[in-house]
Amino acid sequence: MNNPKTIESRWAVEAKGLVKVFGDNRAVDGVDLLVPKGSIYGVLGPNGAGKTTTIRILATLLRPTAGEARIFDHDIRKEPHLVRQLVGVTGQYASVDESLSATENLIIFSRLLGLSRKDARRRTVELLEEFHLTEAARRPIKKFSGGMRRRLDLAASLIAQPPLIFLDEPTTGLDPLTRSQMWDTIRRLVATGSTVLLTTQYLDEADQLADRIAVIDRGRVVAEGTVDELKSSLGTSSLHLQLQDAALSPIAQQIAEKMLLVDAVFISPEGRMTAPIADAEQVTDLLLAFRQHNIHTASLSVQKPTLDEVFLTITGHGVPDDENDDNALQEMSQ
């Protein structure tokens, strides 16, 4: 373990043994986190794993039952007011005033943060422009789409340009286009020197954005490392392929095992082939070989490991469905 006293400048977040108990539910059960400054840190886990609760504790919105955490070397219990000046939080549920317009929302938050009337107005215009909300600025938020709400929410978290930003499932429920726009925004934030801690249910998102990832399950960190470290521990993608002519299955299997350098190619009697692949290039080689042998394919897909598979590998159990929903509800009601 690192001693915070000697390398105090390295970490944006240091959490040790965080515990939060709601009734008899240990929502967070001993979470340790070390988030390096200037990085994007992903907290990956299913609904109810304790992600939101952890973020709420770090943002001083909840008091931990046990454990300690420091934000830029400031204790969250002893110096909450200071910590609040260093973090911006964008929650899972839009935290803006529904009945007010985007401009009014941003001006009120700016004024609360101590900006003068003039600065508040200027900053609001800047942020609206930056998040492509200028045209909708005067409309009440009620009429905003999900993506616009998230953008406004994020804009509100950035008014004071906090060095650390918590994003709780920033893209859950967004369409793919809006999601990739959100990803760009998050990357730009880090480019200006901010540290981002984001939670997500999607391995893909953590993969795209995060420098390091903590996998969290049932309130505990079950794996931690860089994206590559984690991936290599998770296994590889798999190829799914449907042959046009199932009669060619034996020869197709032979070719596949030779080209992919594995002996775990499985073909169903209907001509459906599944094979692990380490490198996407191998797929090209395989398809060329198929063409040479006059084997035609009906469909083809490459699938990355799903969160389910990640969990299965790391924890030995899948994403827990039932208690999952219970915890999510409890987390929401906090």
């Binding site: 943002a59 001083t60 919105l61 609040r84 973090v87 939080v89 929650g91 549920y93 839009a94 935290s95 803006v96 005033d97 529904e98 938050f109 609360l112 943060l113 509100a156």
Partner: peptide
Amino acid sequence: GVFDRFKAL
């Protein structure tokens, strides 16, 4: 939800 933000400010 906005109250959450007030609390975090």
